[in-house]
Write a protein that binds this DNA or RNA. Structure first.
Length: 433
DNA sequence: TCTGGGGTCCTAGGACCC
DNA sequence: TCTGGGGTCCTAGGACCC
């Protein structure tokens, strides 16, 4: 049996942990550059604020509803996620961290002092809330897809108090009949209308669809979903995360950029970030690519292009990869267009344990490897960006830097942002920075 | 005026090999 | 006149996830 533990409205909940005054107010979190709405508290959802909708379209309405608005604060969300996951690891031996706000727990190996899976889940829910301040919901099922479905029902029905166990076999049918096919894990915005047109409206309809038809219309991925709804495990539990096959780092700019100087800073910065991830998973990259683009939403000259470079030998050395990325940029840059976005991608990743240098190429030296290890250690001890390639322009304000007008303090990762709590007799505690 | 960022897997078709 | 059978690799496009 699997349990899926999912944080409720994760980003919005993180903001509330340090702002108890926001308890009943609508809370909304925006994407980079304060562009789109990417998280909403229950109160904001009740106002029919849509996920992913552009902020400028909702602004007035939300202001009228006394909503609290936040720019995204990934330092905070990342650290809160780590706390939640650590708490889960302390309560069950097998935890698969699936995303920043979700984890699967293998219940078969859970401690025996819990008489039932539901009892363990109740304990998990209370403990995570108590230790981190983040509310979670749990769904239990014999497959991941059914655990996901159970989680969905746990969230939708207040009477379940955030925990729901999907019964096994046909006993699940009455619950699957209450779930839209579109809400099943693996059914996205493309397949949902197709299923509807063909009379498949609920998760139960999907469970009962013919294998042949599903295979034809939704490929083996769709068939796996259907088999999982019937109780056969197709998505196994993964204890250790697989290393990534591609690492991408891209960002929209706070303001459009025309000069190649600014694009170089951005590309170097993004590559530096990608390299940290690369070394973090102990990989090297054999291929570097870069892209730049104008805004498709503006009525002006459009340009988008990309270039890639295969390296003579795979590398994880920031200067080597930044140089390759800047060469790619030179290839595609044209003066004139107002660029709004750039990005880099590392691919053809391999294990850094085996370094194969070309016969005639400059080898990655032991010195480079030690240098990168030192850089990573310094940045880890003193904070990201403490040491950086000069090409990134990190020491000065940069024209393209992200717009974040409402970012909350980095409460848990910066000393100067630490929250101060003042308790006054008779009053509830107040929380201030 | 203002529209995010980071991933995975599968399939079909083309080019090539013997 | 008749023209097989078995494979790989790459790419683009499409689906999905958070």
């Amino acid at each position: 049996m699997f349990a899926l533990c999912d944080c409720n409205n994760f980003y919005a909940s993180c903001e509330r942990v340090f702002r108890p005054d926001l308890k009943d107010r609508p809370v909304v979190v925006l994407s980079n550059n304060d562009g789109c709405i990417i998280a909403r508290s229950a109160e904001a959802k009740a106002l029919d604020v849509k996920m992913g909708s552009p902020w400028f379209r909702e602004r007035d309405r939300l202001a009228g509803a006394d909503a609290a608005i936040f720019s995204s604060n990934y330092a905070l969300y990342g650290d809160m996620s780590r706390r939640v996951m650590e708490t889960l690891h302390g309560l069950a031996p097998d935890v698969e961290v699936y995303s920043i706000d979700e984890a699967f727990i293998l219940l078969d190996s859970a401690p025996l002092q819990y008489r039932a899976a539901e009892e363990l889940c109740r304990h998990v829910k209370n403990r995570v809330l108590q230790w981190t301040g983040v509310p979670v919901s749990l769904g239990i099922g014999p497959t991941k897809t059914l655990a996901k479905a159970a989680n969905r029902l746990a969230k939708k029905n207040v009477e379940y108090e955030g925990i729901f166990a999907m019964p096994e076999g046909d006993a699940a049918d009455e619950y699957l009949a209450r779930l839209d096919a579109a809400d099943v894990w693996g059914v996205g915005f493309r397949y949902a209308p197709m299923l509807k047109r063909n009379g498949i409206r609920t998760a139960l309809d999907l469970k009962r669809a013919s294998d042949d038809w599903i295979l034809r219309r939704m490929t083996v991925c769709g068939l796996r979903t259907v088999l999982e709804l019937r109780g056969s495990v197709c998505h196994p539990f993964k204890t250790a995360p697989e290393p990534r096959k591609n690492i991408r780092s891209s960002q929209s700019f706070g303001e459009p950029v025309t000069s190649v100087i600014h694009l170089r800073e951005a590309v170097a910065s993004f590559m530096e970030r990608a390299c940290e991830t690369l070394r973090g998973q102990r990989s090297t990259a054999g291929c570097v690519s870069v892209f730049i683009a104008t805004s498709p939403h503006r009525d002006e000259q459009q340009y988008a292009n990309g270039a890639s470079r295969r390296l003579p030998s795979a590398s994880d050395c920031t200067p080597t990869l930044v140089t390759a990325a800047l060469e790619c940029l030179e290839e595609i840059y044209v003066p004139g267009p107002r660029y709004i976005k750039a990005g880099v991608c590392l691919s053809d990743l391999r294990s850094a344990r085996v370094r194969q240098n070309g016969l005639f190429d400059a080898a990655e030296t032991e010195r480079d490897i030690r240098l990168m290890a030192a850089v990573d250690r310094i940045n880890s001890d003193l904070g990201r960006g403490s040491i950086s390639v000069a090409a990134s322009g990190r020491w000065k304000p940069r024209q393209w830097d992200m717009k974040q007008n409402c970012r909350s303090p980095r409460y848990t990762t910066r000393w100067k942002d630490l929250a101060r709590v003042r308790a006054t007799a008779g009053d509830g505690p107040t929380c201030r920075r």
